[in-house]
Design a binder for these strands. Structure first.
Lengths: 232, 232
DNA sequence: CGATCAGTTGACTAATTTCAACTTCAGTGG
DNA sequence: CCACTGAAGTTGAAATTAGTCAACTGATCG
């Protein structure tokens, strides 16, 4: 595992991160800890499965996927990390996932050690750290239900609604920075199934497709009903 | 372990928890917090999905399942909690899962609030609480890989090896206090598939069956290879 | 402007579920 | 004490879902 597995476009690209200084100081969201700004190229690895887990990261712009591969190549994507989100808590000593940039991405990295130290005297930080972990756990639990018991259509509908919640641009518009293959590996399906299900949802009038990476939710009711969530 | 409590039949039962006082004081595993001992009958509910999450619990004897149901009856079991394990962190405000006793069970309950307060001045407690959460997260991540990408045989083999690790009685003997249906809902399969796969593993010489709830691992090599884990 | 890779669609296959019959087992209750 | 009872478990055949293989389309980059 862990060779350069690129997923979308792979040709050499020129300038990126236009006006961003390569190093900058950012406040951690939860503690009085200074972080270091890092710029990552699309498809570049941020950390590797099994490597020593020394830092956590906050996404400023771009997007990240955390993924795990089996020896025979089967792959699972743990989560898509979007701007504002934090990742890197996958494992106690060493990382369970590999983290890769879905697009050119700017992150801030914080040493775990420093964060843990900071929580020693900062109760607010300690609490928000705990909440962050409990949030990850909740997300994992919802995901396990999806993977264990939902059908392909339900999984895709749930995913679209989740992405819609998380990215909220123009109302109804969902931007998917990842490939169909990434979505499939996130939902425990194949890329063909994802593609077919999206076509089916379009047929039903639940969504419209505008290129491969922009989807508009035409009928949130239908989508929500299809997703199998408890919602009204 | 070894409570001699009946595990699978459900007719009305008389005396249980023979010599245990109904209330006893126990130390939390991670903090200077006192807990209350509680005895639960088989199939009784400990807390309900959606209820306010005020306490966490440590299992002393017996076993617990945490499960989530969809409206149409599909069910998923989040985890089987065995003696020594802690549960109740499923959700920030309210519980994501319902927790039920798999057998007559003795627990100790601790108020979340008290634990959080205790970590304020006890750094060791704070750290072990964080580790406990990270552990749950790791378990969830392994489980997501299993649910997203493993075949039925791989899931069952992985489950058996995990239970073997966790219960380690006589070498090679695994005690399964839950029904096939419970196992199926834990692994995202049907009870028939679980049954078939177990028969298949027996055929292959990987395991032997001694009644429905005791399994001996006859060939750990085979089982490990089948499980699809990275192991040698 | 053509090479390449993402995405879509179709036909077929494989894995798992569903439905159904049958067996086993533990705990009564006669 | 032992036959009865009902749930749990096993097994088989048919049905269904999603996966695999393959052809084709379309977009993007050099």
């Amino acid at each position: 595992m862990g060779t350069g597995v690129s997923e979308t476009r792979r040709p050499a690209r020129p300038a990126a991160f236009p006006a961003l200084p390569r190093e900058r100081v950012e406040r951690a969201p939860f503690a009085n800890v200074t972080g270091r700004t890092v710029c990552i190229r699309r498809d570049a690895e941020i950390y590797c499965e099994g490597s020593h887990a020394t830092h956590i990261f906050k996404v400023i712009s771009g997007a990240v996927r955390t993924c795990k591969a089996m020896q025979d190549g089967r792959r699972q994507i743990g989560e898509f990390v979007l701007p504002g989100d934090v990742f890197g808590w996958d494992g106690i000593e060493s990382h369970f996932y590999t983290a890769e940039a879905l697009a050119d991405t700017v992150l801030v990295s914080y040493p775990r050690r420093a964060i843990e130290d900071a929580t020693r005297y900062d109760q607010v930080a300690a609490r928000s750290l705990r909440l962050m972990m409990l949030d990850s756990l909740s997300a994992a639990q919802r995901r396990m239900l999806l993977l264990a018991r939902k059908t392909a259509v339900e999984r895709v509908a749930t995913f679209l609604l989740e992405m819609h919640e998380r990215t909220s641009r123009e109302p109804g518009e969902v931007h998917l920075p990842m490939t169909r293959n990434d979505i499939a590996d996130h939902l425990g399906l194949t890329l063909e199934t994802v593609s077919r299900v999206l076509s089916g949802l379009k047929q039903k009038g639940a969504i419209t497709l505008h290129g491969a990476h922009i989807i508009r939710v035409a009928n949130r009711q239908i989508l929500s009903k299809i997703s199998g969530e408890d919602g009204p």
